Computed example of a mutant assay.
Amino acid sequence: MGFFDRLSNGWNITMSSFKVLRANKQLIVFPVLSGAALVLIMASFGLAILAAFGFDVEFLESEFFGAESSGSMVLNYGLIFCFYVVNYFVITFFNMALIHCARLYFHGEEVTVSAGLRFSLSRIGVIFSWALFAATVGTILRAIQENTGIVGKIITGLIGIVWSIATFFVVPVIAYENCGPIDAFRRSAQLMREKWGESLGSRIGFGVVNLLAFILLAVVVVALGATVHWALGVAIAVMGAFSIMIVMSAAETIFIAAVYHNVTGTPVEHFNQQLIDGLFEPKN
């Protein structure tokens, strides 16, 4: 399959994802809740650390984050690990809820936010296990990156890319295949090896939509800032950027749900089967 065929397929699959989202606008709630939860949890986390040291920022920086402190490295990476755990847990929890709602829609069942949240709560143990596993990997890569030269940074960067590809299907796998974190990673990587095509055409589609949306937002912001007031332009820029990010996040998660159900043999009514088959086809 040629590049332009994949470009066309990616665009059509992207549009199909947005079609599902338009039919289920309540799914936007999940990325909103995910972002809000991360902000609140990390703000509380930071406040608790400051309170523990009497809000003495200078002491905290000098004693625990100074380059020469032997204890600073342990605390530093401990905090990074905790951040990763929270980050992976929150994102996986709400992505799983969204993926389950997409599955309900694909099967012609009623889609509700509460149904998605209940499903994620029923899988909270494996979500936490995955968060611990992913946070461990992330912390190790961060430590290697920060304590090696340019070659180490390049290697960890490449490992990070491989990790993101190998974990593409992790959320639906831990949702529906009763796998622990290591088995889920292996299963996700296996699915990608079996169905990996020459390129992920959908990334082009989502990239084009994202670029066009931000260009349109920039035009509106500049126009309002120049003709009305700069403060209005800033407000519209913040709200517009946030809206674009949550819509794109929801649509991409719907895409993952659709492709997962396709590659595991479950028909997906609202997606063109040939397009998805062409997106993930075995390598020669």
Rank of each mutant, 00 (worst) to 15 (best):
E68A: 12
L21E: 08
S16I: 12
I13G: 00
G233S: 05
N24Y: 08
A175P: 03
L60Y: 14
V209E: 00
A166W: 04
I144Y: 02
N178C: 01
H100T: 12
M96P: 06
G201S: 08
R186G: 00
L158C: 05
M15D: 01
T266G: 01
A250R: 07
L75V: 07
V209L: 13
F81R: 04
A102V: 14
V228H: 03
M245R: 07
G265I: 01
E177K: 15
A250L: 08
L275S: 13
A226G: 09
I246Q: 00
V259M: 11
K25C: 10
A166K: 01
F83H: 09
F185W: 03
V171I: 15
L47T: 15
V90I: 15
K153F: 05
V74C: 00
S72I: 00
I155M: 09
R187W: 01
A115Q: 10
Q273N: 06
L141R: 01
N95P: 07
I41S: 02
K25H: 07
I246L: 04
L141Q: 09
F93E: 00
L232E: 00
E252C: 01
L47M: 11
E281G: 03
F59N: 08
F168E: 04
V219R: 02
E110H: 12
F133D: 07
S202P: 04
F3T: 11
I276D: 00
F214G: 00
A231F: 04
L216D: 11
N178S: 11
S188E: 10
V209C: 08
R123N: 05
A97P: 10
A257T: 05
L33I: 04
I154D: 09
L98R: 11
I159E: 04
V238P: 02
L132F: 14
I150T: 15
M248D: 13
G116M: 02
K153V: 12
F185G: 03
S164L: 15
G201V: 05
R123C: 02
W130K: 06
F168A: 08
H100V: 12
W196G: 15
I204K: 09
A67E: 12
E194C: 08
C101P: 14
P31H: 09
L7G: 09
F214Q: 14
G207H: 10
R6W: 02
L191Q: 04
L217I: 00
P31F: 00
F3K: 06
F45N: 04
V113M: 09
F55T: 09
V137E: 03
F106T: 02
E194T: 15
A257W: 03
I236H: 01
A235T: 14
A257H: 01
G149R: 05
T136N: 00
V29S: 05
A51H: 07
N87Y: 13
G116W: 06
V219E: 09
E61M: 13
A131T: 06
S62T: 14
A257S: 13
Q26P: 03
D56W: 03
F169A: 07
N178P: 00
R142Y: 07
R203G: 12
V268N: 10
F89H: 10
G46E: 02
E177R: 14
A43P: 01
S129E: 15
E109S: 03
L212V: 15
E281L: 07
L212M: 12
I244F: 07
L47I: 13
S8D: 08
V219C: 03
N147Q: 13
Q273E: 15
A251H: 14
E58L: 13
E177D: 15
D183R: 11
M1P: 01
A131Y: 04
M42I: 11
V209W: 06
K195W: 10
R103S: 12
I150S: 13
